[in-house]
Amino acid sequence: MSAAWKNLLLRHETILGVLLVITLIVLAFQSDRFFTADNLLNQGRLMAEVGLVALAMTFVIVTGGIDLSVGSILGLVAILLGVFWQKLGLPLPLAMMLGIVVGGVAGLVNGLIITRFGVPPLIATLATLALYRGLAEGISQARSVRGYPDWFFMLGQGEFLGVPVQLWIFGLCAVIAAVILGLSTFGRATYAIGSNAVAARFSGLSVDRSLLLIYTASGLIAGLAAVIFVSRVSTTRSDMGTGLELDVITAVVLGGTSIFGGRGTIIGTLLGLGLMQALKNGLALAGVKGDGTIVVIGAVLIGTILISNIFRKDADG
């Protein structure tokens, strides 16, 4: 077997892809209701928000950073959407736009703290995780906003050509993200920063500018996810998106993105997402209770990374 073939076969994405196929087959045998178009599309609907945020998170983690504040940004934008629309009386489309912009600003603030003050991303976004959630709770005064017009639910509950609307949005964003990370100069700069930020800086890359852009994008997309989320559940609450960051990071890391930076792909993240959602849904349909499902997901995460590491060592040696 040629080295190129061997490389392709032993890539984390290939291993993950095979694992995903096996999982789908096994789960399909466990429950005849799993592998139906209806169920799979519905799962796509449920995973769109986590998926959107995971796209941006892939960039963040590839640079060697992390963004723990995405769940809180989602909560903040959800609340602001309601406040802008109901309390300030803005038209709903404008409120949606403004909400997403606020998400971007929140992300930009993360980026500024990290680049201007040299605070490690883990600490910076841990701080804003608390800060943004606190803002959301303070602004909402813990009252939820309800009674959105029917057209708004199109985004989170409607379908276009038989496919959930948010899945189209997610698909589009995924393609854009894959192209940027895989094929553009910006993508190559992202990898360079993650591999060695100092070297990247001395090579003339504007590291700070790239990081600012990436964290802002992370906030923007968390804002977009918030709007979709509100539309899906038809109400806003300040506790929305709690714990979202953990699901997102799990999917990204499962997808083979190195937490130390420099390595990772959008395809990997998509596979990781798919595997996680398939397990959650398939195990539930097969009669496994919720607590058991979490255990399996944890085990799969560790297992995949171990297998991937073993193969990589073999390939290197």
Partner: peptide, 15 residues
């Protein structure tokens, strides 16, 4: 958590 509860119910509808 509202989101998780919704997902649980959704899965049981499918099952």
């Amino acid at each position: 958590n509202i989101d998780q509860q919704i997902t649980f119910i959704d899965n049981y509808i499918t099952s």
